[in-house]
Design a protein around this nucleic acid. Structure first.
Lengths: 232, 232
DNA sequence: CAATCCGTGTAATCGATGCTTACATTCACA
DNA sequence: TGTGAATGTAAGCATCGATTACACGGATTG
């Protein structure tokens, strides 16, 4: 395990120490932050399991043992990466929903799905790290857990509004909720796991297909007689 | 990485050598088979990344280098496990479809989804190994690839029959195809990745919920006026 | 029947990793 | 100004995957 890395003694000194930009100071300055960034970069390059404490230390220009002053274990480092990723994910979803039209709850629910898929497909490795519990335990991280709960709540509220507005053709919100989540999570993972080409969906069409299946789902749960959710 | 294992010199000799059941023979007899079985067991215990060549060798009662006579790399061993898992998966899906009523293609499509989820939830770690391409490359394994293609074809044909029979409310089979796959794949992964509790679905209700969301999806794509797919 | 060949297993070794411990350095506060 | 806590270094342990040289022995031949 753990790839060789190919970047042993390259670019260190990336402007962190406040005092003098001269010879390498004994103390790094903001090692924790830099380690997280290096680890996020590693995740982006080779997925969660490509994260190695030594490599992160190497990229930070620091000895192999140094990271353990900031993270008790490799898992803790990965956890920090996950928290950062989850924070960005939640921020983007919420921003997208803020842009959605206030009326038409079902249309907002749709926007939620689209925004979810857009971020997941644009940040596949980071999406994976916050999804697959193999790399860290959601419930052990207050940050990730609460961010996630917030997104779940957002989805639940939006769907409840759609029901109140008479836009749904079913009353079992929990089923719709889970099915919707399974749909977007499944498509995101199909993209990440490289299944889409096997289903005849090329990289170029992926985003379009993502929107299409969300629309298909929305149409499936919408009240038949009601006006269809606006396609934004 | 790689867990300690805790089973160093325990039960070796598990009845493989043909000649004499006496003292351990120099040659194992059927090491390749036993290694795959040990690796499958490891996958079942701790997921794909819990597979270690040394541990498999240990369980087979053989030296750490021996497995490399049969598998050029750890990945090749995992690949063999994946092929075996995919074979079983395909067999079970096909068996389930064979039991489904011949008429009512949409009902058969539903059975496909149910059988898919049943196997995935019963064999989470093996499902993961054949799904997530992080552990091996589908397209590099003829066995896995062809088994998978067969399942995709099965799904496509069934859905096309449903369209011919006038059971569908849409004509874009590809969208329905992908959405259906995303739905079941997503739910299976939610189960594997431990998301369901966060969505208020306990272990006991998981199988029921799986069936419910498949039904919800089927209802969503079915022709409105048509008779609903039989709930088997 | 005997000699040899080659598939298969062993032993030793390499470099990578996560993690720990003992020591060194420097920052910040009294 | 001094001193303690924070933070980095050096060295070392265990595990792992993978390679290499060697040992065994069943099967094929002459």
């Amino acid at each position: 395990m753990r790839r060789p890395a190919k970047t042993p003694p390259a670019g260190r000194r990336s402007a962190k120490p406040r005092p003098a930009p001269a010879a390498k100071p004994y103390h790094h300055g903001d090692l924790r932050r830099v380690l997280i960034e290096a680890a996020m970069q590693l995740v982006g390059e080779g997925g969660p399991e490509a994260v190695s404490v030594r490599e992160a230390a190497r990229r930070a220009g620091v000895s192999p043992g140094a990271p353990f002053r900031h993270f008790p274990s490799r898992d803790a480092l990965i956890n920090a990466v996950a928290e950062e990723a989850q924070r960005r994910f939640r921020a983007e979803i919420q921003a997208a929903l803020a842009d959605a039209p206030p009326g038409d709850p079902l249309g907002r629910f749709r926007c939620l799905g689209i925004a979810y898929l857009r971020w997941a497909m644009k940040n596949p490795t980071h999406f994976e790290i916050i999804s697959s519990r193999r790399f860290f335990d959601h419930d052990r991280s207050a940050g990730v857990s609460s961010d996630n709960a917030e997104l779940i709540g957002l989805s639940e509220r939006t769907l409840a509004e759609a029901l109140s507005a008479g836009q749904l053709g079913t009353r079992d919100l929990k089923q719709v909720q889970i099915a919707g989540r399974a749909l977007v999570y499944g498509f995101a993972r199909m993209h990440i796991d490289g299944h889409l080409p096997r289903w005849g969906v090329g990289e170029a069409e992926a985003e379009r297909m993502a929107a299409d299946i969300v629309d298909l789902f929305i149409a499936g749960i919408a009240k038949r007689s009601a006006a269809p959710a606006a396609k934004v």
